[in-house]
Design a protein around this nucleic acid. Sequence first.
DNA 1: GGGAGGTGCCTCAGCCCTAAGGTGACGCCT
DNA 2: AGGCGTCACCTTAGGGCTGAGGCACCTCCC
Lengths: 176, 176
Amino acid sequence: MSDRAGGDAMDEILRQWARERPDLDCSPMGVIGRISQLQREVFLAQRATFARHGLDAPSFDVLAALRRAGEPYQLTPTALMRTALVTSGAITQRLDRLEERGLITRGRSDADGRAVVVTLTDAGRTALDTALPDHLETERDMLAGLTDDERDQLGALLRRWLVALGRVPGGIPDPS
Amino acid sequence: MSDRAGGDAMDEILRQWARERPDLDCSPMGVIGRISQLQREVFLAQRATFARHGLDAPSFDVLAALRRAGEPYQLTPTALMRTALVTSGAITQRLDRLEERGLITRGRSDADGRAVVVTLTDAGRTALDTALPDHLETERDMLAGLTDDERDQLGALLRRWLVALGRVPGGIPDPS
DNA sequence: GGGAGGTGCCTCAGCCCTAAGGTGACGCCT
DNA sequence: AGGCGTCACCTTAGGGCTGAGGCACCTCCC
């Protein structure tokens, strides 16, 4: 097939493009493609970790956002939508699942008749606080192949890239 | 809410964790979380590009794999499954869609009665070759906020990380 | 104070995926 | 020849998301 010793999947892809389309500069794929692949590895590793705690990524995402918010662990669906970067319909469904399991409760806001207030239950907080150290351990494991310097360098570059992309924190416009 | 000037979304999240769980070292999230966010930005930008050419990411993925393979632009579903990192069922459905649009054809292999040979049609090759420069332009745009040095550095770090993760190129085991 | 426009959440159809299982073909071994 | 384990691909049920649309409520301004 190819000498794959010491390379990753993108090396082979770039080699193929260089052969088939030598007229094109495909170097951007080197960065972008690897981001996609790494995200996939991260996703799979996280999913396995969450499963050990009876959770999945979307649920963890919501529970973590509520936990991060601090006492009294309350956010509106709109706020959750912004941090999770999914549509309002997705948040509704996530909350349905979490509510059914007793990990959150939904109540109407006193201040705004349209708004819903999502509250982390004790069970929800316990579930999250139990899973969190394991989650962090998984992330640390994934990074174990890099030196501390490399990790810092990588984090700084990714951060700079995100800032350059001009993503204002919180994004998805609700289709309403 | 917070001073978000000059930071990205992860800065705020890390700040919140530092406040709520000062006992935990959440620094791995800085790298992992940003990978996820960047992948999302990449995905959205690519989707918009593909849509301009009447394609979507899964279709482009398959067409590009066939195109990269070179003359006579043929691969088996199993090979496509490995490069796309999705299950066999997903490939079957992708091929159904592409076949219906006349961008690929399916034929049985002469050498192996079980195998299918997927071939890129002229229309498929044209579609891909038309979309490819635009696709690369999109990727270049996304990276425009980084200097050449930073891009190289980033690419090298991501590559090293993937190698360290020990991902053999081509992965998904078929559930058969 | 009443209407217009905006906001917050939900609903629903449709998409693409996974996971699990089925069918037919291959290949080795007796 | 026949049997057994494997392989290649397809099928199907179900999950989570998007995108579009609907309804109630809020806000602002005439």
